[in-house]
Amino acid sequence: MTTVAPRSDVRRHELADFLRSRRERITPEQVGLPRGRRRRTPGLRREEVAQLSAVGVTWYTWLEQAREIQVSAQVLDALARALLLDASERAHLFALAGAADPAPNTPCPSVTPALRAMLDQLAPLPACVQNSRYDILAYNSTYGRLLCDLDALPREDRNCLWLAFTDPDWRESVVDHAETLRILAAKFRASMAEHLAEPAWKALVARLEARSPEFREVWARHEVVGQGARTKYILNRHVGLLHLEHTSLWLGPAPGPRLVTYAPLDEETRARLERLRALTETQTRARTQTRAQDPAGPAGPAPAPGPVAV
């Protein structure tokens, strides 16, 4: 009698073979590792992939051995980056693993066309969509110029925690800077309790600790704070001081993606937000005209303000 292997077994073996083939094609020099004199393995070693992906060597070995283990989207994302997968290979990796791809250059399932339209219509109120790791998944034009020029930043840097501790423009815009950093780090630590083993969260903390002594000092306090609405003063470099109420509307079970809005608390702030929207619209038109006149020219600023999925 012929026995047909379960579909899950086939998927695991295909995934194992695919990972092995991608690992063997990459040279150490491509990922900034020394080759050494006694290298016999074609491409990278398993422990090198594990190191680059911030996962355990044993765990990654089991993955290449097609063992029945669970793999999260965050781990797959880290592996895809470590193995230098292109878009097609990345899609294949996630398909084999049966997981949704959270990549910055793919549509976020939480950011629907209707939600994008809502973000635009909320302007001049600054609004964005964030996940529990404080990645900025989408934003409207006024939020894109509220604290810094988000469009000019790489997608991987569009994270509130990263910007609050490292971006000069963002830091200058926050009036009560020290207290804001303390609360933000405490909220992040509370959110991270459910994601302690996930490489993407650990990688963000490691990146911040390597870059910011201030973050290391605040993070070492182990403070935790829950989510909630707050009033904020923001000193916008274009229109001046803004007095705003910060509110989060959860788009699913908490903790998860949320719609964040900043409502004006006085008429002067409302008028200044209107001026900020007018400014962003002028900049958008100028950038669009520049790209139309010289589409093959040198890389300029990132795309014009508006909802951007990451």
Results as ranks from 00 to 15, higher is better:
residue 273 L to Q: 06
residue 152 A to Q: 01
residue 263 A to M: 05
residue 235 L to M: 09
residue 1 M to C: 10
residue 207 R to P: 06
residue 235 L to F: 01
residue 142 T to Y: 02
residue 14 E to Y: 00
residue 110 S to D: 14
residue 180 T to G: 03
residue 144 G to I: 07
residue 228 G to Y: 07
residue 186 A to P: 01
residue 159 N to P: 01
residue 24 E to I: 11
residue 220 A to R: 11
residue 274 E to I: 10
residue 195 H to W: 07
residue 272 R to A: 04
residue 164 A to M: 09
residue 236 N to G: 02
residue 208 L to F: 11
residue 58 T to L: 08
residue 174 V to T: 12
residue 131 N to V: 09
residue 187 K to D: 00
residue 37 R to V: 13
residue 169 D to P: 00
residue 114 A to G: 07
residue 287 R to W: 14
residue 143 Y to T: 05
residue 197 A to K: 11
residue 257 P to E: 13
residue 226 G to F: 04
residue 126 P to E: 07
residue 254 A to P: 03
residue 75 V to Y: 12
residue 126 P to N: 06
residue 38 R to V: 05
residue 171 R to G: 05
residue 173 S to Q: 04
residue 141 S to R: 15
residue 185 A to N: 00
residue 278 A to L: 11
residue 145 R to D: 02
residue 127 A to P: 05
residue 268 E to W: 01
residue 209 E to C: 15
residue 43 G to P: 09
residue 281 E to S: 04
residue 54 A to E: 08
residue 262 Y to C: 08
residue 113 P to I: 00
residue 299 A to L: 11
residue 287 R to S: 14
residue 70 Q to V: 04
residue 221 R to Q: 14
residue 194 E to H: 13
residue 256 G to L: 06
residue 149 D to G: 00
residue 14 E to K: 07
residue 200 A to Y: 14
residue 64 E to C: 13
residue 266 D to K: 06
residue 18 F to W: 00
residue 109 P to I: 04
residue 254 A to V: 12
residue 47 E to L: 11
residue 84 L to R: 15
residue 302 A to S: 12
residue 79 L to N: 08
residue 258 R to W: 12
residue 38 R to D: 09
residue 236 N to E: 02
residue 166 T to Q: 03
residue 94 F to V: 00
residue 249 L to S: 09
residue 269 T to N: 08
residue 268 E to H: 08
residue 198 E to Y: 07
residue 118 M to H: 08
residue 260 V to L: 10
residue 235 L to S: 10
residue 9 D to I: 03
residue 194 E to C: 11
residue 130 Q to N: 14
residue 309 A to S: 12
residue 240 G to M: 06
residue 35 R to H: 15
residue 288 T to P: 03
residue 87 A to N: 04
residue 183 I to S: 09
residue 178 A to Y: 01
residue 133 R to M: 14
residue 188 F to D: 00
residue 96 L to H: 03
residue 224 V to R: 07
residue 127 A to M: 10
residue 96 L to N: 02
residue 106 T to C: 10
residue 213 P to T: 09
residue 85 L to M: 11
residue 146 L to C: 04
residue 98 G to E: 03
residue 43 G to A: 09
residue 262 Y to F: 15
residue 66 A to C: 08
residue 301 P to N: 12
residue 28 P to E: 08
residue 40 R to I: 09
residue 244 L to H: 13
residue 249 L to Y: 10
residue 166 T to Y: 01
